[in-house]
Design a protein around this nucleic acid. Sequence first.
RNA 1: GACCGCUUAGCUCAGUUGGCUAGAGCGUCUGACUUACAUUCAGAAGGCCGGGGGUUCGAGUCCCUCAGCGGUCACCA
Length: 720
Amino acid sequence: MQKVWEHQKYEEKIYKFWEKSGYFTPKPKKGRKKFCIIMPPPNANADLHIGHARFITIQDILIRYHRMKGEDVLWLPGADHAGIETQFVFEKKLKEQGKSRFDFSREELYQLIWNYVQENKINMEKQIKSLGASCDWTREKFTLDTEIVKIVYKTFKRLYEDGLVYRGKRIVNYCPRCGTAYSQLETEPQERESTLFYLDYKTITIATTRPETIFADTAIAVNPKDKRYKKLIGKTATIPIIKRKIPIIADNLVDINFGTGALKITPGHDATDFEIGKKHNLPTILVIDKQGRMVNTPKQYLGLKAEEARIKVVLDLEKEGVVIKKEKIKHLVSICYKDKGLIEPLPEEQWFIKVEKLAKNALSAIKGKKVRFVSRKYEKMAMHWLSNLKDWNISRQIVWGIRIPAWFCKDCQKWTITEGETPVSCQFCYSKNIEQDKDTFDTWFSSGQWPYATLLARSGSKIKIPLSLKDKKRLIDFANFYPTSVMETGFDIIPFWVIRMIMLGLYATNNVPFREVLIHGLVRDKEGQKISKSKGNVINPLEMSYKYGTDALRTALIWGSKIENDISVSEENIKGQRNFANKLWNIARFIKITKANLNWGKEKPNPQTKEDSLIIKDLQKTIQKTTKQIEEYRLNEAINELYKFVWHKLADKYLESTKIKTEKGTKIRKPSISVLQEVFKNCLILLHPFMPFITEAVWRELNISKKPLIIERWPIIKEK
RNA sequence: GACCGCUUAGCUCAGUUGGCUAGAGCGUCUGACUUACAUUCAGAAGGCCGGGGGUUCGAGUCCCUCAGCGGUCACCA
């Protein structure tokens, strides 16, 4: 054995050995406990970052621990096509080459992105492997795999038949630059300073920040409780410039204290106004188109961008003398989460999921502890979201994704929904004049089905959704591993992903997709700052793994903070863990040099000195403690416990007490060897989930067993 | 504005049914060239556990309150 742990010589070989031997692939037996984690599929559009490394480590620790307990363990890896994200990244690349998506046909563009993603996927798999992830690559899934897509289609069709999917005209969050609508979740509020204009509508004065939309006004609303305006309800007001008369109506959505308490209603360009307009049967007028330019206005504004039009309109209003007051206010506007530009609320025909019922079922599953959140704060977050959800817009006007299996009949104006196959004709009037919707599904609609889709996909497509018990006999993976054990993921995607998996899982399978939810915090830098490229504090996990060893990186990623909390990681931390790995290596080396590794385990541990008894007692305590800590997901405490035991109790104290100096060199007291073997063997077992490479390497170097460590049994201490 | 969380050593953080002298890593300081390991060893300093009040035999831990920080949400035009 070399003087120091040289991880680079071992890691790749050991990983290949594990994978080739099939230890990552479960061979389920009846009656054995099952443990399953579906890996949150990383987006197949970039390198792994330190955050990925952390969650892969956490999941691998749990997986290895349960595997060593002798359970049937499945960790299913995957990759996400990540619709908008990926198309966005790809378009950026095109831009660098001086091209844009409009230079290609739909098919060409799809193929180009496909190739790009395939490349990334292979790269990503390599990176996950280098972190020691013991996931079952034979079951790897991609969100665009044929089998997965089939299941997504089926779910969509059934939702449609159940009346839970509808096509409706609603205000959507349209980004004129991205050329697509977004869901409620994909917009961000941003504080902006704007001018609030008080405009004279003859009978009443209103306040608005968007005077360019006055041409789309179809009413003025006041609060019914507002004494100032009671007499005016039912009368009319007059839009300046175009002099159109519009009714004054009452609606309690209007805030009495804002502006003048009178709100101009523009159903075409504002979500609240759209709602009010619907309630009062007001017409919808559009004055801004999808490119963000003015339409349906007096000639002088036509074709202008909305913000340019505003300046011109204000000038004209001032000329007319109807601007009563101007006031600077700070208010929140919606911006696109991708390009940070203004979102234009527009009424659009899109596919929506009615979420009320689904959310209600998800809520009661959480309340009934069918899904248990390990951390209470995140449970509250999920419940808060579920209680406030709006209908989910699942259409995206992009190419990269699963195309919606809906065909529009130009003759009878009805939609034919299929399970993916192209219909011969309209199912209502049999016209052949049909055309498929150009839109694709929101990525989260497919990843929301991930737990059951991945487990079912292996069994072929002859699956009915919802699944019946009869199906289960045939569907082995699904029967064995669903509901999965733990969903381990980041808090930022609780609303996008976690709650939707619960909703869709319950809907499609009548069962929750997972029993527990473990949410991890962010990786931060040494000072606790968020990691970002612009701050220049990026920690590259692959570089660190290469420099200090994967085991060191892994332990550093769970060291010191609770899983659910943010963690500070620095190169010094990783170095410190590298030192620990080296300490472990050198204990092994010492054992080998002194030939204390011969006949490993032949003799039962036979404590003779008080140090012998003490270390055996301490070992038992450590086993008990760490087992409990892992069970309760307190991985930081477990690794700290093991660190202290190995370094300070075993190496510093016990090992020193067994040394005898002879003329030929240092030896270990013979009667203590059996004790030392017992203790060290258990250290390797307990550390294996955290530091899989070095423990497996040492296990082999010392010839402890013919069986590899990865499938060695976790020790059980009987409680007294 | 609403909801949630945090405040413990110089720094980053543990401390889960309230109970030994409040811990870890890093950092700092003193000493050691001795060895399986200098990626080492022996030791030390450093804490009114944010402020105040309460419950209790006993509070870092439970309750109330104040302050500071952070997060999530929100239709205020």
